[in-house]
């Protein structure tokens, strides 16, 4: 199965604080482990939401909203796409991730729809 692993934003990431050298090195090593285990498909870090835009949909209307956005905890600061055997494997790999932020932070794991999910419908 494929999962998207979402690193949630924090005040620091939203403020555009760049990660420390130590964190970059540790993340590099973790990424290498993921690649060597054959599970890493792709991944990247995202700039703060102040650099982002939203497009709101309502009927035929399209409204463009400029960042930054509130609800920091709901924002995404980075992502990976992994191919794993099951959610348990994804969870164990996420536990091995170095703390992605300076302070407390969260990583969310979401399975992707697969062809098999559509087979029965």
């Amino acid at each position: 199965m494929r999962v998207m692993v979402l690193v949630k934003a924090t005040k620091d990431s939203e403020a555009g604080t760049m990660p420390s050298m130590e964190l970059l090195t540790a993340m590099g090593k973790f990424n290498e482990q993921l690649a060597n285990a054959g599970i890493l498909l792709t991944g990247d870090g995202l700039k703060a939401s102040s650099q982002g835009k939203r497009v709101a949909f309502g009927g035929p209307g399209r409204t463009v909203i400029d960042g930054p956005f509130a609800e920091t905890r709901e924002l995404v600061a980075g992502f990976w796409l992994w191919q794993v055997k099951d959610m348990a494997e994804a969870v164990e790999w996420v536990k091995r991730c170095p703390n992605p932020m300076l302070g407390p932070s969260e990583i969310e794991i979401r399975p992707l729809f697969e062809a098999a999910d559509f087979a029965s419908s």
Binding site: N36, A37, G38, I39, Q83
Partner: peptide, 22 residues
């Protein structure tokens, strides 16, 4: 319609291939 373990072999082989590449 076959047992999902069979198409799963593709993912298994890709994983092996990626490990070997590393």
């Amino acid at each position: 319609g076959e047992d999902l373990i069979r198409p799963g072999l593709c993912a298994e082989a890709q994983r092996l291939g990626r490990i070997l590449a590393g």
